[in-house]
Computed example of a mutant assay.
Amino acid sequence: MTENLTVDFVSSISEVSAEEWDALFPIPYPFIRHAFFDALERGGSIGALSGWVPRYGLVYQRTQLIAAIPWFLKSHSYGEYFFDWAFAEAYERYNLDYYPKLVCAIPFTPSSGARLGLAAGWKAEQVLPTIEKKLDELAIAYGVSNCQCLYLEDDLKGEFIQRGWWQRDDVQFQWLNHDYSSFDDFLAQLTSRKRKQIRKERHAVIAQGVEVRVLLGGELDRQFWLEFAQLYQLTYLKRSGHHGYLTPDSFMRLGEALADSIMVTAAFCEQKMVAAALYFYSDNTLYGRYWGCQQEFDFLHFETCYYAGIEFCIERGLSFFDAGAQGEHKLKRGFEPIVRHGVYRFTESPLTPAIEGFCTRERQMLAQYRAQAEQQLPFRKS
């Protein structure tokens, strides 16, 4: 069955039709959809100027597309969130080139989900050898130091590890819906002190004259996206000194193409939008992604980025709320520590043994950190 397999690495998602690509990913994970990559490409958020150069892997058996996987040639480590700066610095100290590298990931999206799409009847183990062989050719052609697959699903992680890739872990914080009937039902499961604190924070937002509205993708027009992009860029400029990863044009395109998967919590003061958080959602998960504000209001970030999202999950019956990377402050608000994974394969160098050992020690350290974080959760003891 694995005879006559070939792999093409193409530089644009437009080189495969949306119907063919999406058929390989028959799951409601919004970030793997053809339209998501297309919006980033056409909007100028990914490409040569951004340091995210697409190399989508397309596996064919003769003329039939039977697998797809999104790879990017990277000249930096920004927008990945599975931080590898220590590796890059070590390479620099040894006068070795860490970049470019090949990364299988969803740009600017630290969220676990499907990375390898397969046609019916095919398994990862049948196509990975062919993909790896082509990766080896690309690595030689571009002088790549390593290949990474980030925030991948557990089954695919296991297949990569069996093939000798090294595992790294990351701890994120995810809210779980334990069949809550309302936000108050959720609060009732917290300790009295934490429950009072959250209510105080929510009331403080209202007392400042701020109204938070939940808007679905179909309600968002061009003017909204222009204002949201401005808030997003202003916030990144204050925090990081640049305008953020996504362009206004990409936001416009995402709003049009993925309207059925978008929710926004927008904050208004005196009828003017002063802050907003952009979410995507599937049939069981809410994904908190991008945030922007014009001016500071006490606790508004918590309201728009966490509490309103929790309410949305409860009302919609969504099981999970993935609020993004980092943020220990999420623990106090009921987000539980969970482990995410990445896998790595390095071209042989003097640093290879040290990096392999680092990955092992890091996983052990993060397991301890997760156990300690669980002790900080605000839930009442049963």
Score class of each variant (00 low, 15 high):
115 R>S: 01
40 L>M: 08
155 D>W: 10
187 L>K: 05
334 G>V: 03
147 C>M: 12
180 Y>D: 07
281 Y>N: 02
319 S>K: 09
345 R>N: 07
62 R>A: 14
145 S>Y: 06
157 K>N: 14
213 R>Q: 14
332 K>E: 05
324 G>H: 10
97 D>P: 00
150 L>K: 04
10 V>N: 08
62 R>Q: 15
223 Q>S: 12
371 A>E: 14
247 T>K: 10
272 K>I: 10
111 S>D: 02
170 D>H: 13
232 Y>I: 01
376 Q>L: 12
120 A>E: 15
165 W>S: 11
188 A>E: 11
108 F>Y: 11
189 Q>S: 15
189 Q>P: 04
75 S>E: 14
341 H>P: 02
236 Y>T: 00
268 F>V: 04
381 K>M: 03
37 F>Y: 12
52 W>H: 03
211 E>D: 14
160 F>N: 09
242 H>M: 12
8 D>P: 00
261 S>L: 07
276 A>G: 12
76 H>W: 05
347 T>P: 01
378 P>W: 00
81 Y>M: 05
100 P>L: 02
91 Y>W: 09
298 D>N: 11
205 V>W: 07
6 T>S: 14
313 C>R: 01
264 V>H: 02
241 G>K: 08
345 R>I: 05
271 Q>L: 07
135 L>W: 09
243 H>K: 15
272 K>A: 13
374 E>F: 05
354 A>N: 03
347 T>Q: 10
65 L>E: 04
219 E>A: 11
3 E>W: 11
48 A>R: 12
33 R>Y: 03
50 S>C: 02
31 F>N: 03
343 V>D: 02
271 Q>T: 11
168 R>M: 11
253 R>V: 12
66 I>A: 09
96 L>Y: 04
174 Q>R: 11
365 M>E: 13
349 S>P: 03
152 L>C: 11
314 I>Q: 10
16 V>T: 14
324 G>Q: 09
254 L>C: 08
121 G>L: 12
145 S>E: 07
80 E>Y: 05
170 D>C: 14
102 L>C: 02
216 L>W: 03
196 K>W: 02
370 R>T: 07
56 Y>V: 02
171 V>Y: 10
54 P>H: 02
38 D>F: 09
371 A>G: 08
251 F>V: 04
334 G>E: 01
249 D>M: 14
90 A>N: 06
269 C>R: 14
60 Y>T: 04
